[in-house]
């Protein structure tokens, strides 16, 4: 018998604990990404001389480099400049910043999608800038962004396995640790895969349905 059922059952509780950490990373990371992404998108749109250009470049740079290497930089490089957190916090910040670059693009297209007439109407009513952004533009832009947010949440859930490389003890790291200490990788890795699938598959079906329901009417 290749598959050891008793072993599989015995390791399930620890794996579930790892899954919980993965979910924790995903939720906090997504909130961070959604917030930062919005800030980046608005700052870019405001066309502040140097700052907007710098942000535009950072967004492209983060999207063009591997998450793993970004995680290494945060884990190995930043402490030598006196910036250090525990692995979990570092992991959440890294993945949050990484995804904020993608979210920024989503917001940007959402903001671009708000018609020129809306801006003109706001000007005609002499609305102050903060009011125009806060009550007119962003509420319309974010409507189109919500389904994409769901997709990125699921993507981040799976990507967070990469953080095992910087000693964050999430699902993947747990499975690896069980494997190396028992010299049995089949059960922990297969169960880890099934747990990822058990969460992400229903979640993506749900997001698909939401997407269809909230799809903009042409």
């Amino acid at each position: 018998m290749i598959w050891d059922n008793a072993f599989a059952i015995s390791i399930l509780p620890i794996l579930l604990q790892g899954l919980w950490t993965t979910v924790h990373i995903t939720v906090v990371g997504t909130l961070l990404a959604a917030g930062l992404g919005l800030v980046f998108a608005v700052l870019r749109r405001l066309a502040i001389p140097v700052l907007s250009k710098v942000i535009a470049f950072l967004v492209v740079f983060v999207r063009g480099t591997p998450l793993l290497v970004q995680a290494y930089v945060a884990f190995f490089v930043l402490p030598s400049y006196g910036i250090s957190f525990d692995a979990l916090t570092t992991g959440i910040v890294v993945i949050g910043v990484n995804y904020s670059a993608y979210m920024a693009e989503v917001y940007r297209s959402g903001i671009q999608g708000v018609s020129k007439g809306q801006w003109e109407a706001a000007t005609a009513l002499s609305l102050p800038g903060t009011r125009t952004w806060g009550r007119i533009v962003l509420p319309q832009a974010i409507r189109t962004v919500v389904p994409m947010l769901g997709n990125y949440l699921i993507q981040m859930f799976k990507d967070s396995a990469v953080l095992s490389a910087i000693t964050v003890v999430e699902l993947m790291a747990t499975a690896q640790a069980i494997g190396s200490s028992n010299f049995r990788y089949l059960e922990p890795l297969t169960l880890a895969a099934l747990l990822f699938l058990a969460v992400s598959y229903p979640a993506s079906r749900l997001v698909n349905r939401l997407e269809r329901r909230y799809a903009p009417q042409h």
Binding site: I2, K158, A161, M172, R184, L189, A193, F196, L197, S200
Partner: peptide
């Protein structure tokens, strides 16, 4: 498609490298 999109690439890679030898 659903299995490979639904699980992490890293898990898949580790599975092929560490779990497949059990077969």
């Amino acid at each position: 498609i659903e299995v490979f999109r639904g699980t992490s690439l890293l898990v898949q890679m580790f599975w092929l490298f560490f779990a497949l030898p059990f077969f």
